[in-house]
């Protein structure tokens, strides 16, 4: 069967369940399971980071604010009762703070008291609201396309196609269409096979109704990102085609397609 998509493999790295078919493939495919394994290092590291959801708030000693005030020259002061209320909202004020999770330190108790759990849940909900709010802001800014205020140039995926073997080849892969902030489009193409030498692979968009084609560019290595010309309607030119081309100087399609998929 086909390889898992990179999205599926990323979810597998997060230990999210896949379909039984995908699980079966993953268990038997060295390439796919190696991909999951290579993503695990980042996943494990992220999992080990301190996070607001699990770290109860702790009342800081007064000396910390004194040091902040001295360093910044700010004369306003936090109100102790409000500070204490914030600490209580996210943890038990005055309770002994948990030990550091180092090998040398004693382990924290496995089951914290019920009260503390409830307080942590409250802190967690608060935090969740803040993170979700930050995403909502991101969506609004992104959707309006307004002011590129230092936003990353990460493009948003708008369509994807699994590429299946064509014409008796064993090539498969995927194509992902993304739109950048400046509305330009790029097609990411990944293929499982490489040219054998003396030939190269080229990526096309095909209108299945009229059989007209647009050449996007050479698939260099197993993976490449190709710009999609402005004005190309990808709902019409919606078939991604990869052809095997001889190095013969002929710019036309060789008629040897090796993989295809629908956006």
């Amino acid at each position: 069967m086909q390889h898992c998509t990179r999205e599926e493999l990323a979810l597998a790295a997060l230990s999210e369940p896949l379909t039984p078919d995908q699980d079966a493939h993953l268990a038997s495919c060295g390439a796919c399971s190696a991909e999951v394994g290579s993503l695990r290092r980042g996943v494990d590291t992220l999992t080990a980071l301190p996070r607001p959801a699990t770290a109860p708030a702790v009342l800081p000693p007064p000396a910390v604010w004194s040091a902040i005030a001295a360093a910044t020259g700010v004369s306003a002061t936090p109100r102790p009762e409000v500070l204490a209320a914030s600490a209580a909202a996210g943890g038990a004020p005055g309770a002994p703070p948990p030990p550091a999770p180092t090998a040398a330190a004693p382990r924290p108790p496995a089951d914290p008291p019920v009260d503390e759990l409830a307080l942590r849940r409250r802190a967690r909900r608060r935090w969740l609201a803040a993170v979700a709010a930050s995403l909502a802001v991101g969506i609004v800014v992104g959707a309006s396309g307004a002011a590129l205020v230092g936003r990353s140039d990460d493009a948003v995926t708008v369509a994807a196609a699994g590429l299946s073997p064509y014409g008796g080849s064993d090539a498969s892969g995927e194509a992902v269409l993304r739109v950048r902030d400046d509305e330009s489009r790029v097609l990411d193409v990944r293929l499982t096979v490489r040219p054998t030498g003396g030939d190269y692979f080229e990526v096309w968009l095909l209108d299945p109704a009229s059989q007209r084609m647009i050449a996007l560019g050479v698939l260099d290595g197993g993976q490449t990102a190709l710009p999609v010309p402005d004005g190309v309607d990808t709902s019409v030119f919606r078939t991604v085609d990869v052809s095997r081309e001889a190095v013969d100087g002929d710019p036309a399609h060789s008629a040897f397609s090796i993989a295809r998929g629908e956006l």
């Binding site: 607001p52 770290a55 708030a57 914030s86 943890g91 703070p97 935090w127």
Partner: peptide
Amino acid sequence: GPQLYGLAVR
């Protein structure tokens, strides 16, 4: 502050 201090303590 308490939430950040909790992170640092953790």
